[in-house]
Write a protein that binds this DNA or RNA. Structure first.
Lengths: 104, 104
DNA sequence: TAAATATGCAGGCAAATACCTGCATGACTT
DNA sequence: AAGTCATGCAGGTATTTGCCTGCATATTTA
């Protein structure tokens, strides 16, 4: 897992929208996804390429179509490495901050 | 919460390292944090500025020093909005993918 | 086989990013 | 007050990003 690629992929609203669209209906084609975006097909292709490079989406060709599926594994790994530990310590981190803001 | 700012902030290895450093010892000064990075102080300042803009870090001035604290709230919100739903559906999303790769 | 459909590939451009150097300010110390 | 230490601010540059247009290829349909 490359955290850089995953976070960069998630840092763009178009790409998050693509994930939401696939979450609603997994396995959509490029054209299907494009019809929900307000940009040229080629731009959407680039976004999907970035999602694929980050392994957040896997695509399969079927005839002249390209189907896209969410791969939940990298999100899980990001959660394990970068989110969970802050969640676990959440209250004590907030406590540090609060104490300092109160003037110790 | 602005997901763009949070994910962009997390998409740089230097900034993730800063969060790790603060996780080890909360409330460090700029100079203290810099001594663990391999770049000019001014560059580190910019990274900390981005973390602050994303609300992942809050700073407090004390005399001539600036102390930095982790704010766990945005990470929690990102988890709730962008991670948890994929976690919950994780196995069924993987199932979609596996089925397609097997040729349906 | 010709036309229509779905996608791929190349290149171009404006804006954002990540680094830097140089200088300024504000706060402790002696 | 003078010197030192911690940080702030301005600007410059190479690279990356996100969008586009134009053309090429591959697959289905008529």
């Amino acid at each position: 897992m490359d955290a850089d690629d995953v976070f960069k992929a998630l840092s763009d609203p178009t790409r998050r929208k693509l994930l939401d669209l696939l979450f609603e209906k997994n396995g959509q084609t490029l054209g299907e996804l494009c019809s929900n975006l307000d940009m040229a097909r080629q731009s959407a292709t680039q976004h999907l390429g970035i999602l694929e490079a980050a392994n957040l989406v896997t695509s399969v060709r079927r005839g002249r179509e390209k189907l896209h599926f969410i791969n939940p594994v990298p999100i899980h790994e990001v959660y394990e490495r970068w989110v969970r530990k802050f969640e676990v310590q959440r209250l004590s981190l907030l406590h540090d901050l609060k104490k300092e803001l109160e003037g110790e």
